[in-house]
């Protein structure tokens, strides 16, 4: 028995529905104003995207649910979801959408918003770092292979400085600096 005056904390049980006031009604417009987001509202919730996705079965939040969440304004949950980063970018969902919603493109938009808010997997930041530091994703390690085939030893035409310069002043640059 609990003694009088000694109160316990209420158990942490979430039984309340999402209150309308918690919905971010601007999220939909935000996505629609981003590249390839215009068709978002045409979604009629048929879940073809989910049927078409080769890996939706391992997603806790399915592709069509993400799209519905964007439309309703459950912003935080979408942007913090691990699913958007698991997207194969194979465009099967987008290709099959009967209403022309550019599902994969919209997930790219979400990943950009998530990145802006610091919710980005470290491995992706590492790739950004690679790009900024080396100016390319892959560097030639076995130049003898190239020479065997009469190819120039170095990557032809590729300007590593250009990548460093351009991305240094965009989000990638800020991200990499912040990560240091």
């Amino acid at each position: 028995m609990t003694e009088i005056g000694e109160k316990k904390e209420l158990p942490d049980v979430f039984i309340d529905p999402i209150d309308m006031s918690e919905l971010d009604r601007g999220f939909r417009k935000e996505i629609q104003s981003m590249p390839n987001g215009e068709e978002l509202s045409a979604c009629f919730a048929c879940s073809t995207c989910t049927s078409a996705c080769p890996i939706a079965n391992i997603w806790e939040i399915k592709p069509h649910q993400l799209i519905r969440m964007i439309i309703l304004g459950i912003r935080e949950k979408v942007l913090s979801s691990k699913e958007i980063w698991l997207c194969l970018t194979c465009f099967e969902c987008q290709e099959r959408c009967p209403q022309g919603v550019r599902v994969t493109d919209i997930f790219f938009d979400c990943k950009n918003l998530a990145t802006e808010e610091g919710m980005i997997p470290a491995s992706i930041v590492a790739l950004g770092k690679e790009l900024i530091e080396k100016g390319q994703l892959y560097t030639v390690t076995a130049d003898w292979e190239r020479e065997d085939l009469d190819l120039e030893p170095d990557v032809p035409g590729l300007s590593t400085d250009a990548v460093k310069r351009v991305l240094g002043s965009t989000r990638t640059g800020r991200l990499v600096k912040g990560g240091r």
């Binding site: 980063w85 970018t89 790219f108 790739l127 790009l131 994703l137 590729l158 991305l167 991200l175």
Partner: peptide
Amino acid sequence: DVACCGSPNLRAMDYWG
């Protein structure tokens, strides 16, 4: 003098870039 395309991963984190 052309730059690396950045791959879909760059598109994901930095669409503008």
